[in-house]
Design a protein around this nucleic acid. Structure first.
Length: 653
DNA sequence: GTTTAGGCTTCG
């Protein structure tokens, strides 16, 4: 039972025989167990935070905050003392940041509301808040300038921490906080992030573009920025382009949102990952989207608050962000290079892209067109030859597994692991490929649909949205689900070209071979009788005149697919060994001179018509499940993509 | 000095 009945603060023994114990400040306090709290009293208490609504502006003049406090005396954590606090400034409200925080409250006035005790500010109210985690510093967060804090207080905090740590409902800070990578459609999250840009959408809606260093596993709705004036932290926006997440903030949260500015760190409470229902008139993106929404109201603590500089999430968040920015700073180089090459299209002339100095030397000034005007360099060719692809393979394997559904989370976890050795649980889970055997619901739904292609392995890997692929570092492997919106070349006769496996040289099929009256082709459809003119030139330059050793060129498939999953467009090449073999794209349809093999041409045409029916009926395009690997020819080169372990699942008509 | 909101999801 509290001995404080008058709200006077320090407990006085009044008429007691012994003088009250005194602290250095001359005051001492007695603290009431929650089970002893009675209405119409004023008490001091120590407790832990079971629930709280962060400060929000009331419709009156003050900020309001709601908290429910518990201590070991409450029989059931659903019980406890509900408190309601008002203050002119957020800074003079209890500085609660998390469930599990420990509070010391002086002069809490307990009233009756709806037949239950309710804590309110009494005259002289003051509140200290402590991090509830064992081992954390015991310095208090105070709602006032002056406060007492002595060894007894510290002991009390440590005692309550022990209890909190043994109480799972309160011990919430012991696990990693959720990130955008962790979100699931339909759920609500409290997330910490940084505002990169913001815009007023209309009277009742503000858009935040935020990031937390991770990428949502679910494709999400992005605002149409055309009619919006975006307030942006431009340098940051450039660096974190691929990580921006659009959050739509409504109604009573609009004024709160407008007090923020780009660059601010914000805590978003009760962010809803809502299933996006596009309006009927909206040209539907092919993928199902979620949208990130802060709905009106303050239920479940919904709202925006400044992420304070000592918030337990902030340091981890910043460390993840730093790693992303460091990486993007190195990617910026490649981005600009990519832009350079993009002037001629992302896929350039048949440089055959050898990364080795030797090959570059070979490429030199040689011009195969001299001497044979029929040979055109192929105009649609991955910027890499065999050697570089193998290099890519190697590095990919070094890099480890394919992207998990939330690969960004995987990175994040390992980052956390580096700095926080007691948070290794998730880390060890994701480090083994295949741990995320379950797919998301939306993935399951899509699996039931007919797919135009299927993957021939890696089924346990979660699907990654294209926008996440595009911003991921290279090399890496991903599983995608997308539709084919375009492919190149459009003429299936040009799907095959001639390739020299000796020097990685690739050319269009020469006119001499397109004609029916040319020399006999090899017995295997993929064999041509065409000598590699580059090898020939090299050999003659090196003084080798033995024409018998000049390799003949082979037919290979090489097709560029443009894939769309509603989150972005990705151009990926499908070629060579990934195009044909029992497990590869066209399975048993050998590469050949398609100018001369009408039957193969017809089958291919039919496949492509099914996969990519064209603009008019694109919504009918089947989903393509595929494995994609990213790579670069040179370390700083643009990211390139190729399909692997993917095969058609269509019947030729 | 009073009011605000008083946990327990919007529907964009």
């Amino acid at each position: 039972m509290s001995r404080i009945k008058d709200g006077a603060g320090p407990s006085t023994s009044g008429h007691g025989i012994r003088p009250p114990p005194r602290t250095t400040t001359g005051r001492t306090y007695e603290y009431t167990k929650l089970s002893d709290v009675k209405v119409r009293t004023t008490v001091n208490l120590y407790a832990a935070v079971k629930f709280f609504k962060p400060p929000f502006p009331s419709r009156g003049t003050d900020y309001c905050m709601v908290a429910k406090l518990v201590d070991p005396s409450v029989g059931n954590l659903d019980e406890g003392l509900k408190c309601l606090f008002f203050a002119k400034e957020e800074s003079t409200l209890p500085q609660i940041q998390s469930v599990g925080d420990i509070v010391r409250i002086h002069r809490l006035k307990v009233d009756n509301f709806k037949d239950a005790p309710q804590g309110n500010k009494g005259p002289g109210f003051s509140c200290l808040v402590f991090d509830g985690r064992q081992g954390a510093p015991t310095n208090p967060r105070s709602d006032s300038q002056n406060f007492t804090f002595g060894p007894k207080d510290e002991a009390k905090v440590l005692e309550l921490r022990q209890w909190v740590s043994l109480t799972p409902e309160l011990n919430v800070m012991s696990s990693d906080p959720p990130t955008f990578a962790d979100v699931t459609e339909g759920e609500y999250y409290d997330l910490s992030c940084q505002i990169v840009s913001m815009a007023r959408v209309d009277e009742k809606c503000v858009l935040f573009q935020v990031w937390d260093g991770t990428i949502p596993a679910e494709p999400f709705r992005k605002a149409d920025l055309q009619d919006l004036s975006l307030d942006q932290k431009a340098d940051l926006a450039q660096k974190v382009k691929g990580y921006l997440v659009d959050v739509f903030i409504f109604d009573n949260h609009v004024p709160t949102a407008l007090r923020f500015k780009p660059g601010d760190f914000v805590r978003i409470n009760n962010l809803h990952v809502a299933k996006y229902k596009p309006p009927d008139n909206e040209a539907g993106p092919s993928a199902q989207l979620v949208e990130f929404v802060v709905h009106k109201g303050t239920s479940y603590g919904r709202g925006l608050t400044t992420l304070s500089s000592d918030h337990p999430n902030l340091q981890d968040l910043k460390s993840v962000m730093k790693q992303v920015i460091d990486r993007s700073t190195t990617t910026e180089v490649s981005t600009s290079e990519q832009d350079d090459t993009a002037a001629n299209g992302p896929v350039k002339k048949a440089r055959t892209g050898e990364s080795s100095a030797e090959s570059d030397g070979l490429l030199g000034n040689s011009n195969v067109q001299e001497g044979n005007s029929n040979v055109q360099e192929r105009d649609s060719m991955p910027q890499e030859g065999d050697s570089s692809v193998q290099g890519g393979d190697y590095t990919v394997q070094q890099g480890g597994s394919m992207a998990q559904g939330n690969n960004a989370a995987q990175e994040r976890d390992s980052n956390v692991h580096e700095t926080n050795s007691n948070k290794n649980e998730k880390d060890s889970i994701v480090s083994a490929e295949g741990s995320f055997a379950s797919s998301s619901n939306s993935t399951d739904r899509r699996c039931l649909q007919e797919t135009g292609t299927v993957i021939t392995g890696h089924h346990h890997i979660k699907v990654t949205p294209i926008h996440a692929v595009l911003t991921h570092y290279t090399p890496f492997k991903f599983r995608l689900k997308a539709q084919l919106v375009d492919y190149c070349p459009r003429d299936v006769r040009e799907f095959c070209c001639l390739f020299c496996y000796t020097c990685n040289y690739c050319i269009e099929i020469p006119s001499s071979l397109k004609r029916n009256d040319c020399q006999e082709e090899g017995r295997e459809p993929s064999n041509s009788s065409f000598p590699c003119l580059r090898c020939k030139k090299t050999q003659s330059r090196d003084g080798n005149t033995d024409s018998a050793v000049i390799p003949t060129m082979k037919y290979i498939y090489i097709v560029k697919f443009t894939l769309d999953d509603g989150t972005g467009l990705l151009e990926a090449h499908m070629w060579k060994k990934h195009a044909v073999s029992t497990e590869a794209f066209f399975r048993d349809l050998p590469p050949c001179n398609l100018y001369r093999r009408q039957e193969d041409r017809q089958v291919l045409s039919d496949y492509m018509q099914q996969l990519c029916p064209g603009a008019a009926s694109q919504t009918a395009a089947p989903w393509m499940e595929c494995c994609i690997m990213s790579y670069t020819v040179k370390d700083s080169g643009p990211a390139l993509y190729q399909i692997f372990d993917t095969t058609l699942a269509l019947e030729a008509a």
